[in-house]
Amino acid sequence: MANKRVPLNRVVLWLLLTGWLIFALGPYIWMLLTSFKTSSDLFAMPVRYLPTKWSLDAYRDLIGSTPFLRFMKNSMIVAACTTVLTLLLAVPAGFTLSRHHYRGKPVILSLLISSQFFPTILLVLALFPIMKSTGLIQNLFGLVIVYTAFVTPFTIWLIKGFFDNIPKEVDEAAKIDGCNEIRMIWHVLLPVIVPGIVAAAAYIVIYSWNEFLFAVTFASSAETHTVPVGLKTFIGDYVMRWDLLTGGGVTAAVPILVFFMIIQRRLISGLTSGAVKS
């Protein structure tokens, strides 16, 4: 495992990491500080970095007078369901495209990509009647279906690529052991591509977490608002609730951060190298 890392000078490593962290977190730090400010501090000149008076009003309003926690719950449900459903569809598809022979495979693969060519905003009008006739409107399940359809093509590609990296001898060995194909995927191949599955899951979760257009179109009642739609309601025509927007942004980042910290371990998996070495 260790030999796979390119050793870097520690100083350079930390310099780069620090730079990256400042860039990545800068807006969030500003968001966090802003969420504690009172309105007279918001736009003081010269720029006031720290609040003169630390206030929790933004969070009190956010939780007390907006349904933000429900937005978060909705987003989590949609993200979790979409992830499970997409993986159930994309793992078999990725496997078959990696291992079986298809005539015109490049065509199938490019069709998958071409599903992403169109600006989604122009698909809404045609999608709406389908969603309505199948009863998938105004509930979160409809969102899960649409999201799954949109994330599956890339997930298939990704997982196919990870299957491609597994030497064919592993398949052969499993078959000699008497595994059928499904058992082989489940017990032998999947564990090897755990990092790939985790990366795909991260992509799916984040897509579902950030998606706005379908959410506002197909699930736009206060009951089914997700986080992005909820955040956008804080930007009114005549009122701009910076406190709710920043407070909401910070709050919404917490579950995502926890999610990342849980999965990052799995993203780096010693399985492959360790096992193949035996």
Binding site: P167, E169, V170, E172, A173, A174, I176, D177, C179, W186, H187, V188, L190, P191, V192, V194, L271, A275, V276, S278
Partner: peptide, 17 residues
């Protein structure tokens, strides 16, 4: 059969997954 052992090993680990 080196690869065979690999296969066996994974069967155990996959239970967690």
């Amino acid at each position: 059969m080196q690869a065979k052992t690999i296969a066996k090993r994974f069967i155990g680990k996959s239970k967690t997954l």
